[in-house]
Amino acid sequence: MTIGKHLDQFGGYNVRSWEPGQPLAHLENTIYRIAVEYDDKTSWVEKFQGYLATEGAEQSRGLVVGMWGTDSEVEPTEAIDALVQAREQLSQLEVLFFGDITYEENEISWIQNSDNGPLFAAYPGLKHFGARGGNGLRFKNLKAPNLQTLIVQTGGMSAETVRDIMQAELPELIHLELYLGTDNYGADYDMSDLTPILDGALFPKLRYLGLKNAENQDEIAQVIVNAPVLAQLEVLDLSLGTLSDEGGQALVNSADALKHLKHLDLEHHFLSEEMEEQLKALGIEVDLGDPQDPDDDWRFVSIGE
């Protein structure tokens, strides 16, 4: 599976594409996606300036940043700078997704990102934030007093990115999804880098934890069942990775530690049918969709390239 469709919803809002000259409508439940196409003669920053000049733009509650350059190697520094400079005009912004780019536009492992930290400093009211593309992705000095949702999608997450998030000050964070990926596409973290979140004290309000799309999904499963953070969760998301019977057995053996969960997401897995039946018997809601061949010697994460 790859990411082949643009967002149609994020942060509780409908997402619509915006082009220069288009009026802004239904801003109470709609946010707009600004992106360039390969044949565009208008830059992302120019489109964004046009958006800001459109009637009602100051009422925007959110934005979605799509492809910011026609050269796949271009970092989004100009787009980030433009957003930071517009902070007074967009003072009501509470939802932002940075990098809503499909595989047809640019493979997730090719997206060149940069430090997203300045966006949080410029918009302290942000409640929901997502980012896609792991190359160069950083969250330096991440402090977001109102952030409830953080979703970071990569084909391979660097240790630096993980450590930035593990050092963040996010007192209101409820929902965290990290697409950890594979070392073929830049993942060089290890389990010790995730220790702060596993201890349970980092984000005291966390209820949804996704450590997903990982080539070491078995190891993550084995560690999470003994982690203090598990007790505070309502949803544990270990989907999209290479989970096999080894990790499944760790979950089955920890049935008592999991029984409080409202949902266990294991979609895209390499579990045997026998292990699937054992997991169904846990007595909680378990997603076992998109099964892969458990005998396949080549196990792959769902989103990598």
Rank of each mutant, 00 (worst) to 15 (best):
M1I: 10
T2Y: 05
T2E: 13
H6K: 07
Q9I: 08
V15S: 04
S17I: 00
G21S: 03
P23M: 07
L24Q: 05
E28R: 00
N29P: 00
I31K: 08
I34G: 03
I34Q: 05
E37I: 04
Q49E: 09
Y51C: 15
G62R: 00
T70L: 02
D71F: 06
S72F: 11
S72P: 11
E78V: 05
A82P: 08
L83H: 02
Q85K: 13
E94G: 04
V95M: 09
F97Q: 08
E104A: 15
E105Y: 14
N113D: 08
G125A: 06
G125T: 09
F129T: 01
F129C: 02
R132D: 09
G134Y: 00
Q148N: 06
T149E: 12
T161H: 01
R163Q: 07
I165G: 08
E172C: 12
L180R: 09
N184T: 14
Y185D: 14
Y185V: 13
D188I: 05
Y189L: 14
D193K: 03
T195G: 11
F203M: 05
K212E: 14
N213F: 03
Q222N: 13
V225P: 05
L230N: 04
D245H: 13
G247H: 06
G248F: 01
Q249N: 06
S254A: 15
K259L: 07
K262L: 11
L266G: 00
L266R: 00
H269R: 00
L271K: 02
E273G: 01
Q278K: 11
K280Y: 01
R299S: 00
R299F: 04
F300Q: 08
V301E: 15
